[in-house]
Design a protein around this nucleic acid. Structure first.
Lengths: 347, 347
DNA sequence: CTGAAAGCGCTTACAG
DNA sequence: CTGAAAGCGCTTACAG
């Protein structure tokens, strides 16, 4: 008894428990628990007494203890890899706020592709109620593990090869196709593509959309570079694309797989290469991040509807949570071209 | 008993516990716990048997249960308000990775100033081991609550008025002063200041640094606008600053309290106002976010050393965690001027 | 080194 | 509506 007391004093982390409240309010501990459980049956009288005691003591229900007994943590793991790309901060911001609205909390994991596997184990130890993967594609081994653990997952802005997991993405193919028609309509002849990560579904779909759209106009992708969705590598790839071959071969338009890379491309075009945008070369990006509207870029780009994507993601998660079942939905959100002045406009 | 079993089947969330492992390995549950507790005493033999059983069953220790008995969650709450400002994504990214290295996890809260109070209660329920506040300044009421809860806090990039809480910030005053000397040295006569949020310590210190530096050169702040650290409001304030009064009164230099706002200012200067930077007006920002290096801006700015700030923050947190005590340190990280081409360079 | 047992702070049938 | 009690899955003195 004495040991316990001194121990308690030592640890001393605001140790007001439901038992303390119960004692002060002169009710059972169950009664305290019930007044803090929405929908539980307590009389107005005891609720009032409990609340009074609780505020007097500064009682704060321990969410960890609740999690242990209910098996519901009300935490969602959000896994992201690339905050350098301006698209993701807004995703995180909006997703967090949306989840907070519903009384969920975000356990954030920053990772690159390699670490994803070990991370997942770590994340499952925390009994998260669900997972949003906005980083790498899951390996099938990982997808398997998650399925066994029976925790709802949705992949954000990527489609899994495994196919066994819910996904939310924009209509990347449609977006690429719209770009093709816009550029073809603008009279461009030599249209180049600056790719993101080769193994990503977004890159694949945007490129095939472009290719398909151009084919419909009797054109094809004239040249191709790879920027891996990174700024520096995009700048480098742009330089290569526009210096190889004779100047007659030079592309007159460049579709870049992300805005983030498009800014690098424009800088390189205008700086190192001394070209004008869009007079000498048209540039089109993908995402429509806030910087696309900045005066110095005025980037024509395909907009991803982040709000709709998040709504869809959270909806899927909540449905799985409620049904206590893991399902496989695939949402494809329409993407539209936002026309600014970095690409020649069809007349 | 039957009820319990069917219940277990129903919930069914990868329910392998240390007891299951113990049974299979034919040891006590304590032995299982010990083999997963670094530093606990287990013989090599039993450890091996436990590990074999554990991998066979896919056992994953429940971190929530551990938290309940140790009172240590290994979760750190990170509170941020403004991810639109490009400075914060990199802070979150680096902070998360640094914390993950040390085996901590990030519980992310996005909030604006108003919600901060209710949020805090929520956050303390989750038994976080520490808090990094990178959003609003804490109200003194809040600071009080946290102190009572005995959870280590550090304010990141802001100094609390209360003074009772650890803080990490750049040398904002020194940065402002360096800007003053640089602009004075460049022969500017009418130096204006575009403020961030009026009640923030960063804004206050940057402005007083500018004022003090100018005073040392026999100058003073010639004009002043307020952008509240927001893009649109900064654009608007810039427009006002440069259209009021006669054109002879027009500022020839503008120090902006953050890069984020500086981009808006440059866009407005060059777009709506048709002025050249730096020929007609020099612009200097604060933060040195990645966009400051973009070709179209080439922003001269005061760099915040994010790496050092984070190292300091995590160090403070860990020290408090180890000493089981809440202390009050104040770290001020040196800030240096990064010279690019948005401001006339002293000769 | 090892096991039995108490305890962390809740929730929730169960019986009244 | 209410209370006593079992249980969630761990950690950790304690005694051997």
């Amino acid at each position: 008894m004495i040991v316990a007391a001194s121990n308690r004093l030592h640890v001393n982390k605001h140790n007001v428990t439901s038992i303390d409240v119960a004692r002060l309010a002169d009710v059972s501990q169950s009664a305290v628990s019930r007044t803090f459980t929405p929908g539980a049956s307590v009389s107005e009288q005891t609720r009032a007494r409990v609340m009074e005691a609780a505020t007097k003591l500064g009682y704060r229900p321990n969410a960890i203890a609740r999690t242990l007994s209910t098996r519901l943590s009300r935490m969602i793991a959000v896994v992201v890899s690339n905050l350098q790309n301006q698209f993701y901060p807004v995703v995180i911001e909006q997703l967090s706020q949306r989840l907070q609205q519903d009384g969920y909390h975000v356990l954030l994991f920053i990772t690159d592709v390699e670490e994803a596997d070990e991370l997942l184990g770590e994340l499952l130890r925390y009994q998260v109620d669900g997972i949003v993967m906005a980083s790498a594609s899951l390996s099938s081994a990982l997808a398997q593990q998650i399925a066994e653990a029976r925790v709802p997952v949705v992949m954000f802005n990527r489609v899994s090869r495994a196919g066994s997991i819910s996904t939310v993405s924009s209509d990347n193919h449609g977006g690429g196709r719209a770009v093709a028609h816009f550029l073809a309509g603008g009279g461009h002849q030599r249209i180049a593509y600056l790719a993101g990560a080769e193994d990503s579904s977004t890159n694949h779909d945007r490129e095939s959309g472009l290719a398909d759209g151009l084919a419909e106009r009797g054109l094809r992708i004239a040249a191709r570079g790879v920027g891996h969705y990174e700024f520096e590598r995009a700048a480098h790839a742009t330089l290569e694309l526009f210096t190889q071959g004779s100047s007659a071969d030079r592309p007159d338009a460049l579709f870049v797989a992300s805005d983030h890379m498009a800014f690098a491309a424009m800088d390189t075009l205008r700086g190192a290469l001394g070209l004008r945008v869009p007079e000498d070369v048209s540039v089109i990006g993908f995402d429509n991040v806030q910087q696309a509207e900045w005066g110095a870029y005025q980037l024509t780009t395909v907009e991803q509807d982040v709000g709709a994507m998040i709504e869809s993601t959270v909806g899927m998660l909540m449905r799985q949570l409620q049904n206590d079942a893991v399902t496989r939905d695939h949402a494809v959100i329409p993407a539209r071209l936002v026309v600014r002045s970095s690409a020649r406009v069809p007349t």
